[in-house]
């Protein structure tokens, strides 16, 4: 599955690293040189070392950065290091990223969760499931979205619990991961949770190719029973989003439902 990184973050990091990266690349910076930079006591050299990791982006280049993170970094450099690991998306960074999901600063935990998702590291699913318990809402949201991106089907039950506790991003993940048998349960949250919070889940389910058409038709039928104005609007927008060439039963069902809802 393709990892979706925040565009602004990727853009910013790329811009930041591009000139330095070119310079390092020209010099053909090696992991040993990176290690030397990262073990320096000079902030500038450490920064260069972190940026070099981003440019090189290989597993051997990541390892010295992992060691440096474990040895301790100032908040600013740690943030930069995590941004770099996010871009590098190397599974070698997995263990330290897992450790950092327990860092005292929520900003670090958030970046660690995002980088963990990007790295597809072993153990990420369990770690993200645990992060749904985090005290910081941003970390919980990122963990929920990450579980969807990691296709962590084993986390569906916990995601439902998170959704009940107000982690609305769990809706998207459930939509991505839910089995057809889970769809009625998802629909039962309509009315209990803001409908806007539920629509990402419905959109994901309706867009999934692995969900049988019958399940999608049932979902539309169940939504039509709710028959509120916002359901009607949602279904209208869903129909509008479909290509003109789509003449599927799902489209017809959605169109019929919008006509039946009188609000």
């Amino acid at each position: 599955m393709r990892v979706e990184l925040p565009f602004s973050l990727v853009f910013a990091v790329s811009l930041l690293l591009a000139p330095l990266g070119a310079a390092h690349a020209q010099r053909g910076v090696t992991p040993a040189q990176i290690r030397t930079l990262l073990t320096s006591s000079d902030v500038g050299e450490i920064r260069n070392g972190i940026e070099a990791v981003g440019v090189v982006g290989t597993g051997p280049a990541v390892e010295p950065l992992v060691a440096r993170i474990r040895a301790g970094l100032s908040p600013e450099l740690l943030d930069l290091a995590l941004d770099t690991l996010l871009v590098a998306s190397r599974p070698e960074a997995g263990p330290v990223l897992i450790e950092l999901t327990s860092h005292r600063r929520a900003a670090v935990r958030l970046k660690a969760v995002q980088a963990l998702v990007a790295s597809h590291a072993r153990g990420a699913e369990g770690c993200l499931t645990t992060a749904l318990n985090d005290g910081d809402p941003g970390v919980r949201s990122a963990a929920a979205l990450g579980l969807g991106q990691l296709n962590a089907r084993g986390a569906v039950e916990t995601l439902f619990l998170a959704l009940e506790r107000g982690v609305l991003e769990a809706s998207t993940a459930i939509g991505q991961l839910a089995a057809p048998a889970d769809i009625p349960r998802l629909r039962s949250y309509v009315g209990r949770l803001p409908f806007d919070a539920m629509t990402p889940a419905f959109s994901e389910i309706l867009a999934r190719r692995d969900v049988p058409e019958r399940a999608k038709l049932d979902l539309i039928a169940q939504l039509a029973e709710v028959a509120t104005a916002e359901v009607k609007t949602y279904l209208q927008e869903f129909v509008a989003s479909l290509p003109a060439t789509d003449h599927s039963a799902v489209r017809r069902a959605a169109e019929d439902a919008t006509l039946r809802i009188v609000n």
Binding site: R70, A71, G72, L73, S74, P75, H103, R104, R105
Partner: peptide, 10 residues
Amino acid sequence: DFLRLYHAEE
């Protein structure tokens, strides 16, 4: 671990 991880924190 604790000492290393946080000794340079704010």
